[in-house]
Design a protein around this nucleic acid. Structure first.
Lengths: 254, 254
DNA sequence: AGATATTTGTTCGTATGTATT
DNA sequence: TAATACATACGAACAAATATC
């Protein structure tokens, strides 16, 4: 049965309790990103705890990505909108001891990406359309680079779509799947240089951007659905558990 | 552009670096849930850091839910599969400063829950079928309890489905949406005692379990899709941003 | 550019609590 | 019950970073 009390009961340490108290303080005082938390010494007085304990409590918020701590005068803990990477790191930890197959990832992308595509209609500027077009064309096999680099560009295109998504939840889920694909599946991917498929991919991307530009949600959803079928059939061959990861690799830049 | 180096570069503190080193140690030594990490003193020697720094590093892993630290002899840090609640807490932090509408939540459930239903075919035991049936019937308006209690039972049914899902990713996403609904949307929900709808909901749940029992994936998907349309239309009226939360409430038990 | 004040970061010593044997 | 091995908490001192004058 659903029982959250176990998770809550596990918080017996003073630092964990104080972490929750600080969270309550944030909600209660309606603090926004950029606002500063009280200083360590003030927190020590506020919650009647020693420096070490307060620091452990702040560490909890910092690990969640809720605050950034800087030294020096005018330093301290400032609130911030949690960056996506922090969320990803937690989800990676969650998935580490669970078996994921490539088929499961593709199955999810198949239903989520079409929704993503449709959600972007009337939501992207002309500049962003242009940016997407450039990115889409860069994944064409004639553009050079090796096979893996082109796959990364392809995923970067999907990442950009997710970033532009007006629904934070949908955007997060799509980026999540992209990252799982990138860091866990791609390295195992058989290097099957299927040029026909690669051209189809590029064409789909371009057609998709055009549909979004024309504000044709129905067409955008359809193109993405077909696109997902294409890559699913290709990737489905390797029905293997994905490689596991705990730390984020800084290889995502290109 | 996608640039993970910022997130990585932010880790300049010794404790964060050591946390990553411990993660690498876990992956390298192929440690599994239940295995123990070296003692504090050994870790101090291994990574040449003081007690406080090691403690902060362990704190990072503990916040992610990757280890649980117990006191006493034979105590210390033991590895564990990250509980779902820990993942949820991170996602809550991620969503805290982002605007989410109820419509976005329902739109996602509409595409994910049917997949969840289909994924359960041939994956649940007779005992679990029986358990689901009991749970399904408990949400009937004749079963007593107030409106909110019945909504919670309804969500508990969906939670159980997600727990049984063979795909960790899909299961996690569905539970996530349930929790967002429960803790952020339900409290605002107009108490519209629509008895007809409530009976329809119970019927759908029962029919769904029967379809799963008959291993009829197509029917299961269809029933869930219609079910999602029903509740979406009802909940869609309140197109408001959802209430924000940072700490998990232990109210989920009933 | 350099000194200084302010704030976090790190370390140590010690005392306390807690679970095992 | 007592001895133990360990984590937890506190306080004080010092180190490092950084904004400001």
């Amino acid at each position: 049965m659903i029982n959250m009390t176990d998770a809550v009961r596990r918080k017996v340490k003073r630092s964990d309790l104080i972490a929750d108290q600080i969270k309550d303080w944030i909600v209660k005082n309606d603090k926004k990103p950029g606002d500063r938390l009280p200083r360590e010494h003030e927190l020590m007085a506020l919650f009647a705890a020693s420096k070490g304990t307060i620091r452990e409590a702040l560490k909890v918020l910092e690990v969640h990505g809720l605050i950034r701590i800087t030294t020096g005068p005018a330093g301290g803990a400032v609130l911030m909108a949690v960056p996506y990477e922090q969320c990803l790191e937690s989800v990676y930890s969650y998935l580490y001891f669970r078996e994921i197959s490539t088929g499961q990832v593709y199955a999810l992308r198949k239903v989520l990406e079409p929704e993503l595509a449709a959600s972007l209609v009337n939501r992207v500027s002309e500049d962003e359309i242009e940016e997407l077009l450039v990115l889409a064309k860069r994944s064409h096999p004639d553009e050079g680079g090796d096979w893996e680099a082109r796959r990364n560009i392809e995923l970067a295109f999907h990442d950009r779509l997710a970033e532009l998504c007006p629904s934070p939840l949908l955007g997060m889920m799509c980026r999540l799947l992209n990252d799982v694909l990138r860091s866990m599946v791609l390295p195992k991917y058989a290097r099957s240089h299927n040029v026909d498929l690669e051209e189809t991919i590029t064409d789909s991307h371009v057609a998709l951007v055009r549909a979004i530009q024309r504000a044709d949600a129905k067409k955008a959803r359809k193109i993405m659905a077909e696109h997902m079928s294409d890559v699913q059939h290709h990737g489905h061959a390797l029905e293997t558990p994905v490689k596991r990861n705990l730390t984020l690799q800084p290889n995502h830049t290109f």
